[in-house]
Structure formats: C-alpha cells, structure tokens
Write a protein that binds this DNA or RNA. Structure first.
Length: 632
DNA sequence: CTCGGGCTCT
C-alpha cells in the first residue's frame, strides 16, 4: 500500500501530462492511504499546486490526517489552519479536529487555546466542539473555565444533548464539585446509562460510598461499566472481600465481566491472597477465550505472585501475547518477592536479549532482587549500567535499593557511602532498610541511629517503634525498650495488631493475635498444643525477645508469642487440609523471628510446604528451610 | 460528505 501511494504520487508530480478526471478526489484518496508523514506531505504538495488545500472539505481532511492519524503531526495540522485562515474563515470542523488532536496527544491546554482562538475568529462552535473542550477542562481540572463553557452551552440550548451533558457531569465530578454534578444529572431530561455511570464514578471519586450504593440501587438497568465502577470502588477502599462478592453478584445478574472487571477483581484477589479464586478467574479467562493483553496479563502475574504461586505467574507471563516492559517487570518482581532472585536476574538478562528496553521500575525490581539474593557485585554493576547503558537517572528508590543491598550484606560502610553520595535526603524507607539490616547483623549502633531517624521521619508509623524496641531487646537494653515504648504511648501510636488469613474452599478465614472468636477455636488451640509438644521434642525454645512491646510478664509474653496470628492460621489450615497439602498464609505485618523458626520446624516435622506472605515478601518454607534465607 | 476512544482498570 505504501509503495502504491508513493508511486502514484510521484507519477502525478512528475507527469502533469497524465490526465486525471477528478484530481481532487484522487488526492484525498491518496491522503487517506498514506502510511507515512512524508507521503501525506507529498499529497499535500499536490493539493497546494491545484489550490485544493484551502478548499474547506479538503483542508478538513488534511487537518484530520495530520492531527489524528498515527503518522501525523500537530505542527502540520496547525499549518493547514493558518493557510486556510489567510484565504477565508476556517470551518468549525478544522478547529474541532485540532482541538481533538491536541487532546489525544495530551495537550489539553492547547485545546483550550485553540477553542479561544476559534471564538476570537468568530467561528461558531458546534456541539462536537463542546464535547472536546469540556474534556480538555476535565483533564486540566479547570472547573471555572468549565463552568463558563457550561453557561455558554446552556445559553445556546445545547445542554440537553446527552454527550455534552454527560461530559458536564464528568467535569464536575472529577473536579470534586459533586453537588453540581448531581444537579446536572438531576435536571437532565433523558438519563442514559452513561449519565448514571458517570454519576457513580463521581461518588466513587468523592469517596461517598453511601450515595454510590444508593445510586447503584436506583439504576433502572446496569451494564458492565456500572458493575466495574462498584468493584473498583471496593478495591480502592481495601474491601477486597466485597469486591469479590460484587463480582459474583454481577454474574448472577447476568452481566458478562469484561477485561476491566477482571483486572479489578484480580487485584482484589491478590490482596486477599485467595489463590483458588484467582485460578478460577484464570480458567474463566481461558474458557471465554479472552486474550491476555498487557493489563490483564500483568494483573494475572501479580495475582499469582501475591498468592505465592510462581508457576501460575510464569503461565500468565508466557500467555501474554505482546509483552510490554510492565509485563517483564511484573514477572521479575514475582521471582524476586518469592525468593527466587537468581531467576529474576536471569529474566532480566533475557529481557535485554529480547530487545526490551528496561525502565526505571525495572531497575528498582532488579536491584531489589540483588539485595535479597546477596548479589552485591551484580547489583553494583547494574546500578552503574542503569545510567551508562540506558540513560536512566537513579531516583531515591534506587538509592534505597543500594543501601539495602549493602546493609543486608553487612557492608554498612558502603551503605553509608551511598547515602552520603546521593543527591537526596534519606527517606523513611531507607532508614527502615538500614534498621532491619542492623538488627540482622546485630549492629546496634547503626540500628539506633537508623531507628531514631525513622521515628522522626515517620512518627505516626508504628513500624519504627516496633523495630527499634525489638532491636534494643535483642541487645538486652531494657531501659531503651521502655523509652521507645513510652514515646510511642505518649504519641498515641498503637501497634497494628497482627492479622493472618488462609483460604479454604474459596472462603477466607481471618485470625488476629490471640484470636478466640473463630467457631473452631477449641480445635485450633488443641492443634497449637500439639505443635508445642512436637517442637519441644525437636529442641525448640521460644525466643521471647520478639514480643516485647505489649507485654511485661514473662509468662504472658510466652503465651502471646505462641498465639501470633500466623500460628493460629497455620493450625487452622492443618486441621482442615490433607497431609501434604501446601498451606498458604497471608499476614499484614512482617513475620517475627520466633514464628519464622517455628514455621521452619513445622515444615520439617510435618513435611508440609508452608508459604507465608508477610507485609514485605514471601517465605516459602520447605523441609526446615525458608526461601528468604534469613533475610526479611 | 468528515468529528463524540461518551463512563469503568493500570
């Protein structure tokens, strides 16, 4: 096709003797067939020669090609407008096209300027014009300017047009003027489904769950978008359970989930760590023959990864037809967070080999993998290559990875060097990494400094206090433990209670520390006693320094330790699953050292694979050892 | 004779 256009164009340019019965139509045809900017420019040249380029319809076509098509150029589009202006008043179509083109290329401000230019030139806006300009206002959050346009629209009686009215609702909703949005919604004569959905989105954005649900219930009928909006709202507010319920209800109501639905529900399932539900969704995608595009592919990889199921993630990765950087990044992260850092590094090499250009996020993932596998030299090299080979300036997160990398390996001098050299002030994430590493390497001095800084930088986060006091306890510095505890109490910071969950037959069971509310509490505690017995035989002794913050009495401390939520969840899973079944536990906080050693032993004693997802990573316990190799 | 990716996920 490309060759045809080029050949035809040069033929026409080179041989004025060839007679074309309708040269104007031929040119437009050639223009439409153009697949490259230079071809269009050649046709444009022909049109200029025959004075066709300022003819209103042809100029519109030219502007459209330049402003909208993939091989266009907004600069040329504006040139078309300029040349028309010199001859006559441009049509609204040319303006509409330019406004739309700039919107599509993420320059809404230019769209607005063109609209103003249009008005100055006394070109009458059409209702197409308003839809584009209102969208530009929405993207710019230009509420006042949008209100002016709204006024204009009302004045000329166009406010009842559904497209325009919906854009107005959207504008107000996005700008947070929810009552104005509702007014526009209430006063519209015919409310189509988009109007309802737009209003739903408004409540969702404004975090008004009550009005959102009320409106959803009032809807005369709902489509997939309506359901998706509700599901997304649940996900955004951390109500993963409710999101999954909505997803079920949606299907019961006969509405077919689409890709957007699936992406949302997968992220909810990932939060819950509900693997069997995630597998169901994967099977559903395959059954319906839905193609794994980049978004859906990444959502699946992410879900499997967060459920500790690396095989599933690999499947989803391989099943994603057109892999983007994000797809690769997701897979690299999956390996890294599941304790397979060397695989992550391997995949990065494959990625480079496949000619995919890594981005800043790729390097965060990969440097993180290096620190978790203790690949210090490799990480050092990659950090250099990041700028040298790919021109990516490291941001604070990358420096954080490097600090983590060195500190985890016990190279505190190197870590400090990085911090001194970097063009940023250390952030809480960095101090936290340093503090954790100090605890592992028993570098109390470094830990004290990091912990103090951490508490100053993130005074409302309980993690700093907990980590620091735990470290003091390890060092047997009980006076400091008390100080930290007091500071925490004075500032009204509460320790977030540990909470773990396991999924059984599609139902997620939750346990908090010392939980006695579950229907099968008695059996659970009996199981725990059995654990205790077997552990004692293995020669295990509880590490009571891990509890600290909430308890003084040694006896209570011990019992609290045995009742950590992950242990309850594991006991429950033991009661309800056949020997040999892999157990997956999701925890909101990091696993404590005592639980970590207990679970290691349990995996050995009972020959069970136990996978625990804590707040920062996965622990795959198999036959007495853990994939994190003691680093977490 | 042309034009509304109308709302939902990342």
């Amino acid at each position: 096709m490309t060759c045809v256009v080029a050949a035809a164009t040069s033929l026409l340019l080179g041989s004025p003797s060839i007679s074309d019965p309708n040269p104007g139509a031929t040119n437009l045809c050639l223009l439409q067939m153009s697949r490259h900017l230079r071809e269009a420019i050649q046709v444009h040249g022909l049109m200029i020669k025959s004075s066709q380029s300022t003819d209103p319809y042809s100029a519109g076509r030219l502007a459209e090609f330049y402003a909208i098509s993939d091989h266009g150029s907004l600069e040329y589009a504006e040139k078309v407008l300029e040349s028309v202006e010199q001859v006559e008043q441009p049509t609204p179509f040319i303006y509409n096209t330019l406004i739309r083109g700039n919107l599509m290329r993420d320059d809404p401000l230019r769209s607005i300027l063109l609209y103003q230019q249009m008005l100055r030139g006394s070109v009458e806006p059409e209702h197409f014009t308003f839809t584009f300009v209102l969208k530009a206002c929405t993207e710019l959050l230009a509420l006042d300017f949008g209100k002016q346009i709204h006024g204009h629209v009302v004045k000329i009686g166009m406010d009842s047009a559904p497209f325009i009215r919906n854009k107005i609702i959207h504008l107000y909703a996005v700008c947070g003027a929810i009552s104005d949005a509702r007014k526009a919604f209430d006063t519209s004569t015919e409310r189509d489904i988009v109007a309802w959905n737009t209003m739903l989105e408004g409540y969702s954005r404004n975090n008004d769950g009550r009005s959102l649900h009320a409106l959803f219930n009032e809807m005369p009928y709902r489509d997939a978008v309506s359901w998706n909006t509700m599901i997304a709202y649940c996900v955004q507010n951390g109500n993963s359970d409710e999101a999954v319920d909505m997803f079920r209800l949606m299907q019961e109501c006969g509405e077919l989930p689409n890709k957007v639905t699936l992406v949302s529900v997968l992220s909810a399932i990932a939060c819950l760590g509900a693997l069997s539900q995630g597998k169901w969704v994967h099977a559903y995608i395959e059954k319906r023959g839905i193609e794994l595009d980049q978004n859906l592919g990444s959502a699946l990889i992410n879900m499997y990864s967060k459920c500790g199921c690396i095989e599933g993630a690999i499947d989803a990765f391989n099943g994603t037809k057109e892999k983007s950087v994000d797809t690769w990044n997701s897979m690299i992260t999956s390996y890294a967070s599941n304790g397979q850092s060397l695989k992550a590094l391997e995949l990065f090499t494959k990625m480079e080999f496949a000619g995919i250009r890594p981005n800043a996020i790729t390097f965060s993932c990969i440097l993180n993998a290096c620190s978790h596998s203790g690949s210090v030299d490799e990480g050092d090299k990659l950090f250099e290559r990041m700028y040298e080979d790919y021109g990516i300036e490291p941001d604070i997160a990358h420096y954080g990875c490097m600090v983590d990398l060195f500190a985890r390996a016990g190279l505190f001098e190197k870590a400090k060097e990085v911090m001194a050299r970097m063009p940023f002030k250390p952030d809480a994430v960095m101090w936290k990494a340093l503090l954790s590493a100090s605890r592992i390497h028993k570098n109390y001095e470094m830990g004290e400094q990091a912990g103090t800084q951490l508490i100053e930088l993130a005074p409302t986060d309980d993690a700093g206090y907990v980590l620091l006091s735990n470290m003091y306890a390890m060092a047997d510095d009980w006076e400091q433990v008390y100080e930290v505890r007091k500071k925490m109490k004075d500032r009204g910071i509460q320790k977030v209670p540990g909470c773990s969950s396991v999924e059984l037959d599609g139902i997620v069971h939750e346990f908090i520390v010392g939980d006695t509310t579950h229907a099968r509490t008695k059996e659970i505690y009996e199981m725990m006693d059995e654990f205790g017995e077997k552990l004692r035989i293995e020669g295990y002794e509880p590490d009571t320094k891990q509890v600290l913050l909430d308890i003084d009495d040694e006896e209570v401390r011990q019992s609290s330790l045995t009742h950590h939520s992950e242990k309850l969840a594991i006991a429950f899973a033991f009661i309800n699953t056949k020997p040999g079944t892999t157990i997956r536990v999701m925890k909101n906080l990091r696993v404590c050292g005592d639980c970590h050693s207990v679970i290691k032993l349990l995996s050995k004693i009972y020959d069970r694979e136990i996978i625990v997802r804590d707040s920062s990573r996965f622990h795959h316990f198999v036959r007495g050892s853990c994939s994190c190799k003691g680093y977490w």
